[in-house]
């Protein structure tokens, strides 16, 4: 069984946010609640300020703290290494949102970032908390895929509705390989500078394994022990060349 993971090369990342928009298209996300964000930081002063960025999907940790705190096992890890939420089990306590060190989780019932609320414009019924006309065909609440029912938490699934249909045993899901294209997570498939790679971390022959080895893949907040399955390459000269040590823009006054 594969252990799916992602590599993000910050030397190539242009900070364009196509990953964010492809994600919201594929996963029917509401404004400001994409399953993955690009995070921008400003440091320094004129005339030499620096602007850095890096994309932040769910890390699909090997030891996900969100899973460990979930009182109902609604958050679980699949055999192929993906952290998912079973919406049939989620009670909406939001403990996982509190316990995720990376801030990647969303609760269904909230004030909208932007009014008018899209949920009121495209009202849903029953299982669907809203129902936009551009909703995709996939709906798999047991794996947290599709439109959320009310009262649950959701998060990036590595586009589980795509990767779970991939042929078994492939080392990488590369969008440039025609037969595999439809199985590639949206944020990887769309990436114009090809800053993202998706593959089997357990397969030493995979491109992701090679990149992590050759280009010194690093993990965000490794000290938390969550052991992300998303690795960053921070080669010299990258725009967001360093994963910031600080997760917030504020520091001690």
């Amino acid at each position: 069984m594969a252990k799916w993971g992602m590599v993000i090369d910050l030397e190539k990342c242009t900070g364009c946010q196509a990953c964010s928009t492809a994600c919201q298209m594929e996963n029917n996300r509401l404004p400001g609640e994409n399953y993955q964000d690009v995070i921008y930081y400003t440091e320094g002063r004129q005339p030499t300020p620096s602007l850095k960025w890096f994309p932040r999907p769910c890390m699909h940790c090997e030891e996900p703290s969100c899973m460990h705190v979930c009182p109902t096992k609604a958050t679980f890890k699949t055999e192929d290494g993906v952290v998912l939420i079973d919406w049939n089990k989620c009670i909406g306590c939001k403990y996982c949102m509190v316990a995720c060190p990376y801030g990647v989780r969303f609760y269904t019932d909230e004030k909208a970032l932007l009014e008018p609320n899209l949920k009121d414009v495209f009202k849903g019924e029953g299982e669907l908390s809203w129902n936009p006309p551009y909703k995709g065909p996939q709906q798999d609440p047991a794996h947290g895929v599709g439109i959320q029912p009310a009262g649950v938490v959701s998060k990036c699934t590595f586009c589980y509705h795509k990767i779970s249909k991939a042929p078994k045993g492939v080392p990488d899901l590369d969008e440039d390989v025609a037969e595999l294209r439809e199985f590639v997570p949206a944020c990887v498939r769309c990436c114009a500078p090809k800053a993202r790679y998706f593959g089997d971390l357990d397969n030493p022959a995979s491109k992701v394994s090679r990149l992590i080895s050759e280009k010194d893949g690093t993990r965000l907040l490794d000290h938390t022990g969550n052991k992300p399955q998303v690795y960053y390459l921070t080669g010299a000269g990258a725009a967001g060349s360093a994963v910031p040590s600080s997760r917030s823009t504020t520091s001690k006054a």
């Binding site: 196509a18 928009t21 492809a22 298209m25 551009y134 065909p137 294209r181 498939r189 114009a192 090809k194």
Partner: peptide, 29 residues
Amino acid sequence: TNGRVHAIYGNPEHPIANGKGCPKMFLGT
């Protein structure tokens, strides 16, 4: 699918897109 446009991706055979997209491409729906 079922009369609903739900996804747009770059055409891999198109020499400008090469299967990829800028952030706007995915806002088409």
